[in-house]
């Protein structure tokens, strides 16, 4: 065994062409960098949550890691092997080790296939039909806590939570090392959300799974993720241990996100960090620190000089003036 992390991503870049010929002819920028120099590592058995506004690049990052979206730059190493520019045929065996759970539970299950066929499909795709498929289907149903007779149901006969369980069962069918889940509990009621999260937590403990989870529910992040990364305009602005970040966020955007989190108490007095409304366009990234157009703590230097990534406690972040940073940062601010 090596000490190499399961997944190690560095300086990852994904670009999209937008607009057509016309905008190109008109001299307008036609390319956006939706993921812009992202790096992180994921250890075995660990869960990393990606949070950030919609459009911040979470799904694109997940798709790039999973090979569904070509990367324009950087590196994605999985079990020590470089995945960027891997030929299509080499991806197939990898899909057994890395599986993706999509957001829409019912929509991501073909309506014409029974649950039995849906659960048998991963085995068929990987030419594992030699195994006793019925036994595998039964094992998977039991694993995700669905009764056996669900094998004969069709997706439209499932509730949202049950469909999500089938999604989880498919994702873990081939004993993957890594699950990438895009909003696995979006649209679920709290009680069912709890069931799905308990299930994912269980499977992680039992199978030693690693997970990369995208969610905009910060309460979910706290319940499931060892580490979290906050994305803004395609970059990580802060990444670190979840509990530490919840206790003391260092990046102003992280602090704003956490302070926005609605709580189930009508009398709660929210001490919110209000952000100006306008989210900058990826076609016209702000100069200096890209958050300066909305940051309540911005100073002159922020408008011209991009902060370089730094480490603080268990976190890495990109900000000239980190919050909750103790005396050293106060000095840094005073000195600037």
């Amino acid at each position: 065994m090596t000490t190499e992390p399961l997944l190690s991503v560095s300086d990852l870049r994904v670009r999209f062409r937008i607009g057509g010929m016309m905008s190109a002819l008109a001299g307008r920028r036609t390319e956006i960098e939706a993921v812009s120099g992202v790096g992180f590592t994921l250890e075995r058995g660990q869960t990393l949550a990606l949070v950030g506004e919609s459009g911040s690049g979470k799904t694109t990052l997940a798709r790039a890691v999973d090979g569904l979206q070509p990367a324009a730059g950087g590196s994605i190493r999985f079990e020590g092997r470089e995945l960027r520019d891997l030929p299509k045929k080499d991806w197939k065996p990898l899909r057994r080790k890395m599986s993706m759970m999509f957001q829409d539970p019912v929509g991501s299950l073909s309506p014409r296939l029974s649950v039995r066929s849906l659960l048998a499909e991963p085995f068929a795709i990987h030419g594992l039909s030699g195994r006793s498929l019925d036994a595998e289907v039964e094992r998977l149903l039991a694993l995700v806590g669905l009764p056996r007779d669900f094998a004969d149901r069709y997706p439209h006969q499932l509730s949202g939570g049950q469909a999500r369980r089938v999604g989880v069962a498919r994702a873990v069918a081939l004993d993957p090392e890594l699950i990438i889940a895009d909003e696995p509990t979006a649209g679920l009621d709290v009680s069912i959300q709890g069931e799905v999260l308990n299930l994912l937590n269980d499977l992680r403990d039992r199978m030693g799974l690693s997970m990369l989870i995208i969610t905009h529910n910060l309460h979910v992040v706290r319940q499931i993720a060892d580490r979290m990364a906050v994305m803004y305009l395609g970059r990580f602005v802060e990444e670190g241990e979840t509990e530490a970040i919840f206790r003391a966020p260092h990046h102003p955007y992280t602090a704003a996100l956490l302070s926005a989190n609605p709580e189930p108490d009508p009398d709660k007095v929210h001490n919110r960090i209000a952000l100006p409304a306008e989210v900058p366009s990826l076609l016209d990234r702000p100069s200096g620190c890209e958050f300066h157009t909305r940051c309540p703590f911005a100073q002159d230097i922020c408008r011209t000089q991009a902060p370089t990534p730094s480490a603080l406690g268990s976190s890495r972040l990109t900000c000239h003036f980190p919050l909750n940073a103790g005396p050293s940062a106060v000095e840094a601010i005073a000195a600037s």
């Binding site: 506004e53 979006a186 905009h216 910060l218 996100l257 609605p262």
Partner: peptide
């Protein structure tokens, strides 16, 4: 439901 926390609050 599909919005992030800052936007939801907004």
């Amino acid at each position: 439901t599909a919005l992030d926390a800052t936007l939801e609050v907004a």
